[in-house]
Write a protein that binds this DNA or RNA. Sequence first.
DNA 1: CGCTGTGATACTCGGGAGGTATCACCGGGA
DNA 2: TCCCGGTGATACCTCCCGAGTATCACAGCG
Lengths: 287, 287
Amino acid sequence: MDTLETRELRYFVAVAEELHFGRAAERLGIAQPPLSRAIQQLERRLGVALLERNRRGVSLTGAGEILLQEGRAALDATTAAVRRTRRAGGAGRPGGPRDRVVLAVKAGAFHELLNKLLDAHAAEPGAAEIEVLPSGMCEQEAMLRDGRADVALMHTPFNSLAGFDSVALVTEGQVAILPASHPLATRKSLSLAEISDVPELPLARWPRHDTYPPGPGPEVHDQTQLAQLIALGRTTAVFPESARTWLWDEHAAVPLSDAPPVTTHIVWPAHSRSRVLAGLIETASRL
Amino acid sequence: MDTLETRELRYFVAVAEELHFGRAAERLGIAQPPLSRAIQQLERRLGVALLERNRRGVSLTGAGEILLQEGRAALDATTAAVRRTRRAGGAGRPGGPRDRVVLAVKAGAFHELLNKLLDAHAAEPGAAEIEVLPSGMCEQEAMLRDGRADVALMHTPFNSLAGFDSVALVTEGQVAILPASHPLATRKSLSLAEISDVPELPLARWPRHDTYPPGPGPEVHDQTQLAQLIALGRTTAVFPESARTWLWDEHAAVPLSDAPPVTTHIVWPAHSRSRVLAGLIETASRL
DNA sequence: CGCTGTGATACTCGGGAGGTATCACCGGGA
DNA sequence: TCCCGGTGATACCTCCCGAGTATCACAGCG
């Protein structure tokens, strides 16, 4: 009576996201009537109204908001359980798949650190296989939560380490990435104010948790797009120093005097206790 | 095909914990054969062996260990969803229950800070109701994870904040709590070494994650037991300075020069975003 | 006033979860 | 050696509940 089937959670989350029974049912691959009944039954069992059925549509009650949030977390945890169990399947048995750890890394970042880490890990005696999984900008957190990855490299203060265990690896300053031809590109150092005050070079905007902040700069989705736009003299960006590795000839990197330092962390789900993961973390923190 | 019902997780966790189908079935309130079948089906669907059925009993494979760990986390998340949704039920509607936040606090600790926090919060305009939930020694983490609590006060380095968001509130030194009649009780300051070297006063041992470390000291479960034993001159203990509030006349508190400082944090599940909780955290960090 | 689109209801059907009875296997003791 | 206690697996049956189809009730809107 105080438990809740995964199916019910999936159904509710679908309805809460679509705010429309028909579309939700279609997304779930079932018909609309069973979905209506399932939600009603869910509300009865919880003893709580989750949806406000007003004319022309559906909206969430306060309790519904909570269940959406908590239900997503629970569903993530469940699919994580499946993914990680499958991945661990047969590990350790000769002939079966080797121990494997999936490391989520922001695509295009961490080149140097990542190389050092992988080399150091490969040099360990009983080294497990590490699969490097490139991720979108703020996607690593979701990947850790739903089990697509076991461990990740993240940058504070950009990524939030909320909900995870982590060890800080290195801290570095930030640089402004400018078109090499731009007047500011020859400066020894710049301030954030100077960067933001250049009207012909608006700062590029990254998707942050699925939403763009309003602003003048162009919207970019990956480092290649951004590199292109900078080379064309259309925008500028601020990055950790280690981003120098991927700069083109057309780019210039100028240190920023007042940008907050960026720290790279190795991050994993708090409840992980696997030997392989522990080894990797140990290796990383010795770098 | 890549999802997993709560029921299946419950079943597997029961078997993995009992390592015995019969007992697990009894605990689950079902018969043994359906349980056997459910686990077989689970293994087939995951494509992974979870249990090693050797003669005379059952043991976990590597994948089984992972699923036990991850499954527990997923089940906790599910029951947390139910608890928090029920708690939020009807909130905001006049006549219904008020907004309520459950604050888990180590029983007997945090007296001063807790009073200040509750007073400050009650003084806020739209103050929600705060229910203070006393918890066992290291139980607050579990309470946050499975939804019995929404927010907690914890001490580092004793509690691990792993998996949660937190804000540090105050840092304080530690004191040794001694029988007032003991020779060391008159000292202005002590070192950890001096404390541990007194054979007639072995340090008390607390249950830490359900297991006692081996050692000579008596086992204690709550502060009252401990207070009694100290007053009787049978043991000693190390506590944050703020513990002075609950000392008896028969107790003496002597500052420790080399004990690590203790920081009190307010801690909540990383995905929480409720307005009420945000208000409480805001109030706490202004203290 | 019908038409459209919404969610709820009525009824039926089939799969699967669960129960009972039983088997197959192994180890230990007299 | 043989039987017995205890383990998990299998066979078979029952029945509930989840899902589908058809339909309703209702609200907006031209």
